[in-house]
Design a protein around this nucleic acid. Structure first.
Lengths: 168, 168
DNA sequence: ATAAACTTTCATTAAATATTGAAAGTTTAA
DNA sequence: TTAAACTTTCAATATTTAATGAAAGTTTAT
């Protein structure tokens, strides 16, 4: 396979994977493009390479900055803004985990804890089932949360290396 | 908080979480409903409780069966089909991990391995960056894949318990 | 102060995704 | 064999989500 086709396929696959996991397809594609680009790119270049509008490119780049996945670069004597992606995949993984934990896991965890307090008759199967289910999910979610916390602090080798030793 | 409100909130939160992670909102809600229901429910009951159409209920219940999250129950003397959810949350988590790994992670892993073979000039920064990026992602994805494999075989206590001991 | 270079916004439009419900299909019992 | 009970399908519709692009906004150099 030649490089241009490979790039194309990579960008498409990354976009598809993103959309399957609740991340805007275009955002994932822009991220992919910057990941495989040795140089920082301008909004214009992103627009051209992915055939998207200025507005879309602008908003997507901003989103990616909010996710902490890309950064702006300013070049002296130029007014254009260049964007480049963090290239270390373990750092990227941690960043994504951090954001999704904060945006999606933590609010649910908070609600589950509240729902556990629901009052009712322990003899009522409706009540008993609800309470057990919520409590169990809360426990699991708590474990996931703690594990992510660990992952956020960890170095890749430590995290995966130790895990494999343990579970082989 | 009283039970009916708590149920409502739980179903909504589960639906929202699902949609944030690329799972159809209704599917997550139906799953939530069955999770907190002490008895198996009929399609009619699901339709009524969540205010959805027959077609929608039917397809959603089928999807949930394909995900291995719910099962049919037949009662002697009755023609109706009853549906109930697996209640053990660790089993649910493993089942979801298993399906998403198979449906979404593995195809990407396969493509990445192909893309790593791309031919080109090692002096070309475009080529070098592409190759490095793809190789790195492939390694990480491989680690994630192996970890999920481990998780699929593991008991919850073993999995999280050991992880905490290790990473405290 | 002005205008060129560049970025951002947001109402409109388009695309993707989910839902409906009536009709067709299937199963069971008499 | 037929009809009632129940399930499935799918074309049409509605909803949600994303993208466009022209206009407004901002910054910088002169």
């Amino acid at each position: 396979m030649e490089l241009p086709e490979a790039k194309q396929r990579f960008i498409e696959a990354w976009g598809k994977l993103g959309s399957e996991w609740g991340i805007n397809r275009t955002m994932a594609q822009v991220h992919a493009l910057l990941l495989i680009s040795p140089e920082a790119l301008t909004t214009e270049q992103v627009m051209e390479q992915l055939q998207i509008s200025r507005g879309n490119a602008n908003m997507t780049l901003r989103d990616l900055m909010n996710w902490g996945l890309i950064e702006k670069q300013h070049r002296s004597g130029e007014r254009k803004e260049y964007f480049f992606a963090e290239k270390d995949v373990w750092t990227i993984a941690r960043q994504v985990a951090k954001e999704r934990k904060r945006r999606e896991l933590e609010p649910v965890l908070k609600l589950l804890t509240q729902l556990q307090e629901v009052q009712g008759d322990a003899q009522d199967p409706e009540y008993a089932t609800f309470k057990t289910t919520v409590t169990d999910i809360n426990k699991l979610a708590g474990n996931v949360d703690k594990t992510l916390e660990t992952m956020l602090k960890a170095e890749e080798n430590w995290f995966f290396g130790s895990m494999f030793k343990l579970f082989k």
